[in-house]
Each structure stands twice: as C-alpha cells, then as structure tokens.
Design a protein around this nucleic acid. Structure first.
Lengths: 120, 120
DNA sequence: CAGTATCCAAAGGGATACTG
DNA sequence: CAGTATCCCTTTGGATACTG
C-alpha cells in the first residue's frame, strides 16, 4: 500500500462514489443490453425490446424500463394507436453510456481470446 | 425497428454475446471496485482490499477474488512471511477493464449533475 | 492475517396465466 | 400490444463467530 496522500485518498473516495452510482444504475443482467438496443435502433416498442433482449421476461423488462425511466435514461411514449403501442427511446444523457458498453464490448471480446489461449 | 439486414443482425448478435460475457465477468456490486483498487495500488493484501472496498465482508471478498482469479483477472500470491500474508494483483489482461471503469466513472459523475438539475 | 462456517433476509429473476 | 399478478426458486450478500 504505497504512497497515497490523504488528499489523493479523498479524491479517490469521491470517484468511488461516482463508480458505485454508475454500477447501481447500470447494474444487473439486463440494463446495459436494453440501453444498447435502444441506442442502436433509436426507438423501440415493448415487444421489439423483448425480442431483441433475448431471454428477458415481460415482468423483468417492465421493471427494468421503469427503473431506467426513473433514472432519466429512458423516455416512455404512449402512442395514440389502436391497439395502443408504447415506444421507448434514450434520453440525451443516456447516450453517455455508450462508452460504457463499448468498453465492455471490447473487454468481452478480448477476454474470449484470453480464455481460448489458456488464460493470463 | 428500422433498416437492419440479416447480416448486420448477426454481427449484432455476436457483439451481444461479448457484452453478456463482460457483464457476467464484471457484474455484481463489487468486482469493478476491487479491480479499480488493484489497478490503483498495484498489489494489495486481503486486508488492504477489505479496507478500501468499503462495506464488503470477508466472505464476499473471498468469493469475488476467487471468481476473478478463475477468470484470469487477478493473481493470488502467498508470501512466505510470519504470519502468512497473501497478495493480490491484476493480470495484464485485467488492465483492459480500465476503459470500463473510466467510462463508468465518467457516466456516474455526469449522472449526478443530471439528477441535480432535475433530470433529462 | 486470511480466510471459513453458519445463519438468514432480501433481491433477482424465471414460468405461467391473466387483463384492458 | 403492453403490460400485471402470482408463485416460487436461486443468488446475493450482510452479520457474526470461529480457525490455522
């Protein structure tokens, strides 16, 4: 445990908080995938999302979308159609998660290579 | 749901898999924090980690470290001291998670600003 | 110091059926 | 179509105590 002054430690603590926030906001099995799909397609209906995010149930999708909406990452729009349809899209702010999933993507791809070659 | 050819869809599916892998590898409440600390300090003992990753219990820390080791992200070294100490450090490969937590960090910080200003 | 062991509560999440 | 409702199992992880 080297060479970190108290000042540097405080900076570190503050960054840890931002990190924790981000992990809580984007955590879980599905949120990143949902955001990525919305980022890719722009606007999607509930059913489209359920098809693209393979394996998610409607119950879970509902809950995830509600949480994302509460955190200002997703906008829900009710369309005046028959039957009623609902559209989801990202907020401006949510596009800043792009770096996150790009980084995850890159890491995931490299990890596969590492595992194939036997680790380390 | 616009304009995505079957070919593009296949690419997308493959990327989804890498994304899923990464989420599983780094998922949960603690792994990113642990990796970030190891990245920052270089080498840490069990107890150091438990202090820096505020709130984690020894049981959970043990399990997280084991998983990280199994996935070639962390190296565990037993030091020939009295009493025995154990050091943890990152593998080369693990340093590629840096982009992930930098992105998370940036997002977390911006998100706080958004929430303060009332959303959107 | 570096963990294990035990107990337990809460959250996550799948399956299925149902509704306006 | 876009969800709710219900059931129930699994995983997560906190608290506490203990060990070589």
């Amino acid at each position: 445990m080297p060479l970190i002054t108290r000042c540097e430690k405080n900076e570190k603590r503050e960054r840890s908080l931002a990190l924790r926030d981000a992990i809580e906001l984007l955590g879980g099995k599905w949120k990143i995938c949902i955001l990525q799909n919305l980022s890719l397609y722009g606007t999607m209906r509930f059913k489209d999302l359920q098809e693209e995010v393979a394996g998610i149930s409607s119950k879970v999708l509902t809950k995830e979308l509600q949480q994302l909406e509460q955190n200002f990452l997703v906008v829900r729009t009710i369309n005046n159609t028959k039957p009623v349809t609902v559209s989801y899209s990202l907020t401006e702010h949510a596009y800043e998660t792009r770096n996150v999933f790009n980084a995850l993507l890159e890491f995931g791809a490299k990890h596969r290579a590492v595992v194939k070659s036997g680790g380390g």
